[in-house]
């Protein structure tokens, strides 16, 4: 019994910290989502009005659509390309470790730094335009100022920065597969593709779910890229406005804290559904 109390005493600081800085803000945020609160006056209870109003909110609908496009672009290609990169770096070849380290470099700087760097590279008359448009004699491409191009520029920069990170997770998964499995497959006459499909991929199931879950959660929460990279945050014409950015705008620029909290709750629900779905899929598989 005494031992039990000591145990509780030891975990209390961590639990207290979690309760004060995670649990309480979450619950308070949930409470705020049922209020109208302009930060300058006390919140007023409005029930579910904020949630109902969201569906009539043009800006919310646009941000939701943009977020879903970004999630698709930041999840599926990342999943496939990071796996391909891992398969390449899982092979033995000269200077592999050096190349792997170089490939991993984009993961190291904070995303805001990456955004600033790419803002320079994606100047309409900049390096990327010269590299891509030069073939067709185009000297100006509005990567960040065109409503059609800007969302894809966000996805491209995000994927460039995140693929190496997820590659490392795949590599860890590949390293955990006992070599005897591949050897047995090879003895049975399986080629590299067949061996990957029937031996490696089933063994990588948990890793696959982890990569899908982490990349989709991160993509749903994307903020810094859309805040820093375009000429104006979320622009042009809100084509890169995502839900997390809308939370900031509604809460601290429009002083509509209740609406901002309601969007956060919706985001939480979406991320929860996607994660539970992926876990269910993993168990079923």
């Amino acid at each position: 019994m005494r031992y039990k109390w000591w145990g509780l005493a030891f975990v209390l600081p961590a639990v207290g910290f979690f309760a004060a800085f995670n649990l309480f803000p979450m619950l308070f945020g949930l409470y705020l989502s049922f209020t109208d609160y302009d930060l300058l006056n006390p919140p007023i209870w409005v029930g579910l009005d904020n949630f109902f109003n969201l569906w009539d909110d043009r800006l919310f609908r646009q941000a939701l659509g943009n977020t879903l496009v970004f999630v698709a672009g930041a999840t599926l290609p990342v999943w496939v390309l990071s796996l391909l990169a891992a398969l390449v770096f899982d092979q033995a070849f000269r200077a592999r470790d050096w190349l792997k380290a170089a490939f991993f470099l984009p993961v190291l700087p904070p995303i805001a730094v990456i955004a600033v760097l790419w803002r320079v590279l994606l100047h309409p008359n900049g390096v990327i335009t010269s590299l891509t448009g030069g073939w067709w004699g185009i000297t100006e491409i509005r990567w960040l100022a065109d409503t059609a191009l800007a969302p894809f520029s966000m996805i491209a920069v995000h994927d460039w920065a995140m693929i190496p990170f997820f590659m490392m997770i795949w590599l860890a998964g590949l390293a955990a597969i006992p070599p005897e499995f591949r050897e047995a497959a090879a003895i049975d006459g399986a080629g590299p593709v067949r061996s990957f499909w029937h031996v490696d991929l089933p063994q990588l199931r948990s890793t696959a779910v982890l990569v899908a879950a982490l990349s989709s959660i991160g993509a749903f929460q994307t903020f810094a890229l859309q805040y820093v990279l375009p000429n104006d945050a979320g622009g042009p014409a809100n084509s890169t406005m995502v839900l997390a950015l809308l939370v900031l705008k509604y809460g601290f620029q429009y002083f509509r804290m209740g609406d901002a909290a309601a969007i956060s709750v919706v985001m939480f629900g979406m991320i929860l559904c996607v994660t539970l779905g992926q876990l269910w899929f993993n168990r079923r598989a």
Binding site: D232, G235, P236, N238
Partner: peptide, 19 residues
């Protein structure tokens, strides 16, 4: 009162016109 929101609406319109 809602200066930031109104300005954003005007900037959205401006961007659409520029597009």
């Amino acid at each position: 009162v809602g200066y930031a929101q109104v300005l954003d609406a005007i900037l959205r319109g401006r961007d659409k016109v520029v597009q």
